[in-house]
Amino acid sequence: MKNNKSTPLIETIGLRKLFKLNGGARLHAVDGINLKIYPGETVGVVGESGCGKSTLGRTILRLIEPTSGQILYNGSDITKISAGKMREMRKDLQIIFQDPYSSIDPRKSVIDIIAEYMFIHKVYKNKIDTYNRAAELMDLVGLARRYSSSYAHELDGGRRQRIGIARALSLNPKFIVCDEPVSALDVSIQAQILNLLMDLEEELGLTYMFVTHNLSVVKHISTKIMVMYLGKCVEMASSDELFQNPMHPYTKALLKAIPEPDISKRDEEFALIKGEVSSPINVKPGCRFAKRCDFCFDRCIQEDPNLTEVSYEHFVSCFLVEKNKVEK
């Protein structure tokens, strides 16, 4: 899986996005993220609302311009390239949106939505070839061709999400950011779309970054998982490792908080952390999670913990874990 270890497909180095608010306050949406995504991997990014996971996905694609840091695609920096070159680059880097209702222009028919990117990049010389390719894409994502002239509002959420997927695939991308692609869908439809995404990954050799708040979905689809809290990565490990051996107090609490469809765990305490996600505006130094953490000590409030590798490919950003490691 990681045979191509030398060059990640996507790499971010110290990626940072600050939003300046009225009155000079700064919102730290993404705060120094270092992430390597190798070809064929699916990296899950989890966190609660406001942790910056969606902003991260959009910043990597430069749909939002980063404040500082670098984004490397196949080893070359795409942070500074011109708008025109970036438009060309979008063929390789795509996105699937969360909301299948707002991500599709209500005034265009299905086939036109799927064909739009191909028209922008003039992939085919004539219209017929373009529409035929769009029809093939409909087959690929399991959307019957008879819907080609329908408008998106005539279709249900699952079918709309299939349109979004077909559109993202239309330029044969290498890397796709999936921004909560199933959270607006019903359970049975969600399963259909997840299966489709996994099939496509295998068939077309895609690499995903899967942004979601749903831990069971992320476990199902990802090979590697990054947990974000207030713009920072608190823990990163392979999917199995993270679920079997979570180390950061936040990850532990997050895993416990999922209500599992299993009544044997019915009476377990599952709300482990108190309080709410604090504001990402003008954050003070120190660990972002310190306020809600039961194990918080002096150092957590004074210093920022660094992301350290505690075991092979398992990174945690917590003084507690660092301390334990030294004691061992």
Partner: peptide, 30 residues
């Protein structure tokens, strides 16, 4: 949750949820 007899729809609903404890390749979607 524990009984053996289920309506096929209930069965489908359970199959559609990605399971945290076991790792299945595909979900049994309806």
């Amino acid at each position: 949750f524990l009984g053996e007899d289920h309506h096929p729809y209930t069965e489908g609903l359970f199959g559609s949820i990605p399971n945290l404890s076991s790792r299945t390749k595909r979900l049994n979607s309806i």
